[in-house]
Computed example of a mutant assay.
Amino acid sequence: MNSQPVSQLFGARADAYANFRPHYPPSLFNWLADQCPRRQRALDIACGNGQASYPLLEHFEQVLACDSSLQQLQAGQNQPGLQQFVAEATKQPLPSRSLDLIVVAQALHWFATPAFFAEVRRLLQPGGVFCAWCYSLMRIDSPIDALIDHFYWQTLDGYWPTGRTSVDAGYRDIENPFCPLAPPASSITAHWSLEQLLGYLRTWSAVQRYEQQNGHDPLQQLEPELRQVWGDAKQPRFIQWPLHFLAGTPN
């Protein structure tokens, strides 16, 4: 398989990520803020275009947001109170015990190593909170779900970067090194047209790797089948992605 770094794949389609990735529920950020004794500084690691960074601004005085891809950061928007910078997850240019909250949205599986968790422990103040979450396959209805499941598990088999299996496992395969917290069950929801769904599918890293290695878009075969079962392509459908968490406070 192609060894191109994941950050390069994501950076190559940063605008698509900004346009087509679903948004997290406000209730999640309300819960995170409620867990923090102080709400001065939060850090969003592997922030991408800022889908978790911007909601945190409603709860914290300052939000720091880092990503290894400059293109992803450039696809975001400047907001008062938000400071963005390029950094690797395990090497943060920040003082020890300087953060009240650290979040990782849809990215922990790329760097869930002892070195990363040691860095989290270094950065958090006493009582600080760590929370990572992920989502995998969306659910729409049985006929559409069957097509997307086949595309995910069969067509794209072998094209997902190492670490994606943790998403499929809902992060249950990653040992939580902290005193665990249990966020309330929640999901991402959206009402999307077929074009929005196709735009989202094209942000998948495995779709990009498949296209690079085979010279054609793997969605070319899936799209006609989706159009047939979708019906009116402009008619929005309700889509749901269950969220899975790994959260806790340092001992």
Rank of each mutant, 00 (worst) to 15 (best):
N2D: 11
V6G: 02
V6D: 10
G11P: 02
A12E: 15
A18C: 08
A18T: 03
N19S: 12
F20M: 05
S27H: 09
L28P: 08
L28E: 00
L28G: 05
F29D: 04
F29Q: 02
N30Y: 10
Q35I: 03
P37D: 13
Q40A: 14
Q40T: 13
R41E: 05
R41Q: 11
C47M: 11
G48Y: 10
Y54S: 03
L57A: 12
F60H: 01
Q62D: 04
C66S: 15
C66Y: 07
Q72W: 03
Q83E: 15
A89G: 05
Q92A: 11
P93N: 07
P93H: 03
L94G: 06
R97K: 13
S98V: 09
D100K: 09
I102F: 06
A105N: 14
Q106T: 13
H109I: 00
P114S: 00
A115F: 05
A115P: 01
E119R: 01
R121Q: 12
G127V: 08
C134D: 15
L137E: 14
I140A: 02
I144Y: 07
W153G: 00
T155N: 04
L156W: 14
D157K: 11
G158W: 12
R164W: 15
S166W: 10
V167T: 13
R172G: 08
E175C: 07
E175Y: 08
E175F: 09
P177E: 04
P180N: 13
P183R: 05
P183F: 11
A185Y: 07
S186V: 10
A190F: 11
S193K: 08
Q196E: 15
L201D: 14
R202N: 06
T203H: 09
R209M: 08
Y210T: 03
Y210N: 05
Q212M: 15
Q220Y: 04
Q221A: 15
Q221C: 07
Q221H: 11
E223I: 05
E225Q: 15
L226Y: 10
R227F: 10
G231F: 13
P236E: 09
R237L: 00
W241K: 09
L243S: 09
L243Q: 00
F245A: 02
L246N: 01
A247N: 02
A247R: 00
P250Q: 03
